[in-house]
Structure formats: C-alpha cells, structure tokens
Amino acid sequence: MAKQDTSTTASPQRKGLRLPPETGIFVILALIMAGMEVLTGNFLTIGNISTLLVNTITIGLLAVSETFVLLIGGIDLSVGAIQALSGVTAAVVINHTPLGWPGAILGGILAGALIGFINGSITHYINVPAFITTFATLGVAASIPLIVTQANPIPIFSNTFNALGQGYVLKIIPIGVLVMLVVAAAAHVVLSRTAFGVKVYAVGGNRHSAWLAGVNIARIEILCFTLSGTIAGLAGVILAARLASGYPTAGSGASLFDGIASAVVGGVSLFGGSGSVAGALLGAIVIGTLTEGMDVLDLNTYWQPLVIGIVILLAVMLDTWKTGLLRTLMRRLRRA
C-alpha cells in the first residue's frame, strides 16, 4: 500500500511540469540570433542589441495593441496611420498651446484612443467588419496629418519630450524600451489576471457562448479597439520624440503589417481566443532581429519584405492548421 501511495502522489508533480506556450517562439528567436551571430561575427554586441531594441519599440507596441483586437477575432489596420496622427497632434500641442510636453504626450495618446473608440463603436453597433472599418479610418487618420501640416514635418524642440524617444535610464536602458516593457507587462496582467481578460478570451473563443454567459460584448469589443488605438497613439508619440518631429507620413510603411505579423508570429491567433502579450512581444523581437540582421548583412532592401512576408505566411499557415486541427478534434469529442 505504501508503494501505491508514493506513486499516486508523484504523478501530479509530473503533470505539473509544463513549458510556457511562448517557448517555441523563444527558441526560434534564439536560433535566429545565433544564426545572425554566425553569419556576421559581431551581431550579439551590446551596441547592436541596444539598437535592435530601440528599433523594435514601435513594432513591439503595435504588436501589443493588435493583440487586444486579434484576441476577440478582429483586426486593426489603422494603427500605422494612428502613429502619424498622434505624432503630429503631439507636435501641434507642444508648439501651439501652453500645455507643454505633458499635454503633447496626453494629446497624442488621446488622438489614438479616439480613433480606436470609433473603430470599436462602428464595428459593433453598425456591424461593419473590422477589416473595412479600420481600413476606412486608416485613410482618415493618414489624411488629417497631411492636411494639417501640408505634408511638412513639424519640428519639436522640447528636450524633455524628445527624451522619451532618445533618452536613457542610467545611460544604459533606452527610455522608449522601458516604456514598451511596462506597457507589455501591464497588458499581460490585464489579459491574464483580470475578469476583463477572461471575457476577452471568451469573446474570441466563442462569441455566442460568451453572450449566453452574460458577457457584455459591446463593452469588451469597444474597449479592445480603444486600447489598441491608445497603445498605437503612444507608439506614435514615442516615434515623434525619437525623430524630434511630428512626421505626417510616419507609420505609412510596413509598421502596420510588422505589428500584425509580430502578434501572429508570436502565437496570437487570427481567429481569436488564443495567444499572449509575451508571445506577441517575442514575435516583434523576431521581426526586428530579422530586419536588423539583414541590415547588418547588407542585404538588398528589396529582399527584406520578401523574407518578412515568408515568415508571416508560414505563421498564418501554422495558425490556420492548428485552428483547423483543434476544431476537428472538438467535433470528434462531441460525437464521442
């Protein structure tokens, strides 16, 4: 009998040993970094890693913002344009109002939050697909800065404001990187440790079941889009501080797709209901590492979108395969 008791008490301990779901993307990141080090011989230097992290700030924040929307089965195409709108808003506030740099930061973030709130409201109450809604607001948010500035950058001369994108803590850690990590940590806590986070996953997993369970779908959907816009607005403010200017064309390149790609590569499902902020942030670092590595290798810039595109395609294919497999297993379990 004693032997039986020992075995039964030992088995739960073996079951408790689980690897985090982000282990896979972490291993991929480590392999990519090791490969870049072998190819270049000087990739893993302190200076290069610091540059990599600084260049990843915008992508990382956009990956976090997209995570909220992707988890409920939506998508936000406006986050790149929000960067331009929030950056120009911050520049206008700091140059033409007495609110100074605090007002500039707040104004830029609120501009992004407003676009996010509009996205969520239209998507839910008018029942317009998120792809169409955010594509339309992308055009609006991209045009307003061009109209206001006549396509001319607005310089920002506040050293305090610019330190947000250019300064360092203890001359080691870039302030922008620290902000990105704090935002990611806060988002992780919200999604994994609060009732709101449970409802977000519930809505993304099965909207109808979540509604039957009493979840306020409208509140969750609008909040997720608003949070997406808010974080994208913060990314635009940090980018403006880094450039010391409100650029009306900021975010018009591949930053939108890099943000979505980072989240998907990091394991956030395009179908909603699964994924994590930690995975999305690791995905952003993977995209940033590939981009930085190709720059160090002096690879023709025309090749870079091709490589990133293949990575995105493979990630989406894997996500689709996993989702289809899961649905097949669920159907078989129900029949059984």
Score class of each variant (00 low, 15 high):
204 G>S: 09
126 I>E: 12
300 N>L: 01
14 R>T: 13
174 P>D: 04
72 I>Y: 06
313 L>N: 04
332 R>N: 13
178 L>Y: 00
296 V>N: 10
332 R>S: 13
186 A>G: 10
134 T>D: 14
10 A>E: 15
79 V>F: 08
111 A>Q: 07
190 V>R: 01
65 S>C: 00
80 G>Q: 10
33 M>Q: 06
315 A>L: 05
31 L>G: 06
290 L>W: 03
179 V>S: 07
20 P>S: 06
224 C>W: 05
264 V>S: 08
98 P>E: 08
306 L>W: 06
74 G>A: 08
186 A>S: 12
181 L>G: 03
158 S>Y: 06
302 Y>A: 11
288 G>Y: 09
74 G>H: 04
148 V>N: 03
101 W>K: 01
322 K>E: 11
243 L>R: 03
273 G>W: 08
88 V>G: 09
78 S>D: 13
299 L>Y: 07
296 V>W: 04
279 G>R: 02
40 T>Y: 08
136 A>L: 11
119 N>W: 03
195 A>S: 14
65 S>R: 00
84 A>K: 02
221 E>A: 06
202 A>F: 01
9 T>S: 15
297 L>C: 08
144 I>H: 00
211 W>V: 07
226 T>E: 10
301 T>A: 11
111 A>H: 02
197 G>M: 08
328 T>F: 14
62 L>N: 02
191 L>G: 05
119 N>M: 00
275 G>W: 04
154 I>F: 03
155 P>I: 03
62 L>F: 00
302 Y>M: 12
330 M>Q: 15
95 N>C: 02
291 T>V: 14
293 G>L: 09
229 G>I: 03
140 V>G: 01
68 F>H: 09
200 V>N: 10
249 T>C: 09
77 L>E: 05
72 I>G: 05
201 Y>I: 12
139 G>K: 07
30 A>P: 13
221 E>S: 11
293 G>P: 13
70 L>R: 03
